[in-house]
Design a protein around this nucleic acid. Sequence first.
DNA 1: ATTAGCAGTCTCGCGTTGAGAGTGCTAAAC
DNA 2: GTTTAGCACTCTCAACGCGAGACTGCTAAT
Lengths: 349, 349
Amino acid sequence: MAGLTERQKLVLALLVRDYVDTAEPISSGRLVANYHLDFSSATVRNEMAVLEQRGFLLQPYTSAGRVPTKEGYRYFVQQLMGENELPAPIQEMIRHQFYQARHDVDDWLSLSASVLAQHSKVASIVTPLHTEKARLKHIALISTRGRQVLLVIILNNGEVHQQTMVLDELLPREQLNAIAEQINLLASGMDAKELEGISSKLQDTPLEEVFAVVYRVIKQAEVISSGDVYRDGLANMLSEPEFSEPEKAKQTLELFEDRGMMDDLLSRTVFESDAPGVHVIIGGEDTWEQLGDCSLIIARYGSKEYAMGAVGILGPLRMAYSRGVSTVRFVSDLMSELISESMSNENLI
Amino acid sequence: MAGLTERQKLVLALLVRDYVDTAEPISSGRLVANYHLDFSSATVRNEMAVLEQRGFLLQPYTSAGRVPTKEGYRYFVQQLMGENELPAPIQEMIRHQFYQARHDVDDWLSLSASVLAQHSKVASIVTPLHTEKARLKHIALISTRGRQVLLVIILNNGEVHQQTMVLDELLPREQLNAIAEQINLLASGMDAKELEGISSKLQDTPLEEVFAVVYRVIKQAEVISSGDVYRDGLANMLSEPEFSEPEKAKQTLELFEDRGMMDDLLSRTVFESDAPGVHVIIGGEDTWEQLGDCSLIIARYGSKEYAMGAVGILGPLRMAYSRGVSTVRFVSDLMSELISESMSNENLI
DNA sequence: ATTAGCAGTCTCGCGTTGAGAGTGCTAAAC
DNA sequence: GTTTAGCACTCTCAACGCGAGACTGCTAAT
């Protein structure tokens, strides 16, 4: 299990690069011609044979060109792919787009999704901020009309959750304020576990109904709230040739629509890991059988003290990893920057 | 241009029914055998020839079975399709699901989307409530952390808009309250036009920044806010045989993702029309070229006094219209009912 | 007005075939 | 020992042809 020679690495890198572009099996002759290599196609064939035996390449059928395996992609991403930044003009453009949306935090998320989809040419996912240890700071109850009220829940990290709810009975505004005030006094500073502890005391009081919702929201804040996950670029992805068979396309679409699955994936990968960088998951390795023949490039944003979310892109195995990683890294860093700025007390912009 | 005979109607109705099930061109013999008709296949062939000449049917190629045209579907929907209600047990089931979510208005929307997708087997779209004449009732500014504040805008119809915003400079809580109070005094009861009128007076005052956002939100409330449109059942739709060619699938997906298009479609169809019932748009008739080979079944919910939204399903031309219409009607009625209940002052539920 | 019968037409699936692309191997060259 | 030219071999893919099958349209009889 010695490492690969320099020439083998070169062949693998070029092959991956070419295959990502063309989606067709790459032949030895093609590689020599395209990149003006100073050794012959026969030599390339020999190297390919080695790479195939190592499990980095395979032939779709006897005597066809080679295609990278999952292992091949992984080696490429970990060892061969350079870390190049997004070109400066594009960085500027994206920054400008975020500047336009500087007053509206919710827009940051959809903008991120749109930027990722546009620049990576595959599908994107962006989750909202969430905290591991959510503590209640403050709630407000605002009467809107009839029995409908708006419950605003602010967490100690500055995260805001809003929830329209319908009360069982109509209450006057003063009573709403009183309920909010009581809950604030009683429960401020508590996390989900502590809230559960006092919930029994509130049985059959007027607070019960509102409190139940507060508890549920705080509890949900500990996992990614899947309702507000932003997605974009689905159509991008389906135009890739790997999804020409409708079965594949359907499968991938279901993966994309399945909230539980995505939640699990994101939280496990991004939040349980201590590595803060960009994660690249190529196909269903080990635990991620469900990903099938898709790859996910993902990173978290925010900071550990306040709250974190995740941004990522989902595409076929044959995707432009280098570009994808640069894009995800840039967007996640930008989001982190914007958020920490808006949380701070200084007057930047 | 005389009407169709009873027998011609029967043939058309049965053919549409069979074709929706099988997705294959229907032959005269098949129709006679399946439905035990008391006339022969030759007679059916003659009737088919008439229907084809009228533009209701066509043959994919010479000497194949017949397939309904768009006109054929339209005639079927308008003249032949019976109006049957959703089966009572299913109605009960859906009501129960909504009952579970009775405290959370936002859940109604996603639940509607999910119910529609599940029962119609195609893709669904649900827009949030919106008003044509939005008037400001009341705003609240809640500090969350750093320069981030939550701006809550309540319209006179009870509609609530929330917007997280980032202020240019950090303001203490008292000052936020003061700003909110001043805006409430100044602008309460105004619509977008009137707000625009006073915006010049606020230039270079501390109110300017917040006021700009209030104005924008009210203005946006007059069109469907596309950000919060719920969708579901995409994967359903792509498993239909009409989307086996990737081009078609991509086209439809783009239609589905394109917010501007959908907004336009929904608002024009549902809100400009005075007919409150269920609308069926079959393929790109006249103005709706973009729909291509898809059909849309759509209805509004809510009430004209307060606010309205739209629920609908999007599928291939070959869809189960009868079932679709029943489902959309039931869901839209149920939503209207729930909303008017929650807006009223009585204590139902 | 309806229907049986039949010739005509078009699709679809299947097997064949030939061109083309690319490999693996061997033997020669460096 | 490494590299390379040359070549036989393998496999896919598109094109073609062909026959079976499915329906129709028409005509003539009922």
